[in-house]
Amino acid sequence: MIPLSYFLVFAAALFSIGLYGVLARRNAIAILMGVELMLNAVNINLVAFWRYITPTQIAGQAFAVMVFAVAAAEVAVGLALVISIYRRRNTVVADDIDLLKF
């Protein structure tokens, strides 16, 4: 049987890869992809804890469903912002969109 540690190590690695993508990529759409990877890692953890620690309560799966909804909303609004910025500024590079930085 698979011990819980396999899933936790996998989710930690996936979260770290997503974090690297968010911090290092220049393209705004690539940053959103990194966020998706991080949300998926969190979901794996939620479901693994449900299965291994509290299998009689369904809270882990219910939270995972909420994370699905939040991820869908986030990517819809994020991509709309990217397309709107591309239309006005003709760029999708996050470094060039820094007017709010000060």
Binding site: S16, L19, Y20, L23, A24, A94
Partner: peptide, 17 residues
Amino acid sequence: QTNAAWPWALVIAAALF
């Protein structure tokens, strides 16, 4: 495709892991 601070991003991700 990566910004100037990508080695720091790698360090932060590895430290988090």
